[in-house]
């Protein structure tokens, strides 16, 4: 069974490292990024089942990072990791295509569960796309 791949993005290095360790111990393959730019580079190079994205980051904030991630991969499942201070922005992020909001402090079990269902959603979407593609081929060839 393939491992769920997640990109964890937060400018607090120690937070990212500890949460990543906890998620890895639950069988997830976790890549860490401590800025929006690092996250964008990672998504350009690799495929992830989900991205966990902090909103309040210096340089490139979460909303802008979300926009750029979706430019690269429109179907990417981006989940927001939000402090209470940024709940309003998190709601805006949902309007802009994020799939879920987690308020810090998070329950790691819930996080892992949602990431696993994100993977299932991604695979289902890929199946739909593949099915549409096959139907298109069949239709064009008149089979």
């Amino acid at each position: 069974m393939a491992t769920d791949r997640v990109l964890l993005v937060d400018d607090e290095k120690e937070f990212v490292e500890v949460l990543a360790e906890r998620m890895r111990s639950r069988g997830l393959d976790v890549t860490c990024a401590t800025s929006g730019r690092e996250a964008i580079s990672a998504v350009e190079e690799e495929t992830f089942d989900a991205v966990l994205l902090d909103l309040a980051m210096p340089d490139l904030d979460g909303l802008e990072t979300l926009r750029r991630l979706h430019e690269i991969q429109p179907e990417l499942q981006v989940m927001i990791l939000s402090g209470r201070a940024t709940v309003k922005t998190a709601v805006e992020a949902i309007r802009r295509g994020a799939t879920d909001i987690f308020e810090k402090p998070t329950d790691v079990e819930t996080l892992v569960e949602r990431i696993r269902s994100a993977r299932a959603t991604r695979i289902a979407h890929e199946d739909d796309v593949a099915e549409e593609h096959i139907e298109e081929i069949l239709r064009k060839r008149g089979w």
């Binding site: 607090e12 120690e14 937070f15 402090g83 201070a85 810090k104 402090p105």
Partner: peptide
């Protein structure tokens, strides 16, 4: 906001 970051880290370390 900075205090929140500290609390979040302590919380994850305890976890």
């Amino acid at each position: 906001h900075e205090l929140s970051n500290v609390f979040n880290i302590i919380n994850e370390i305890a976890g």
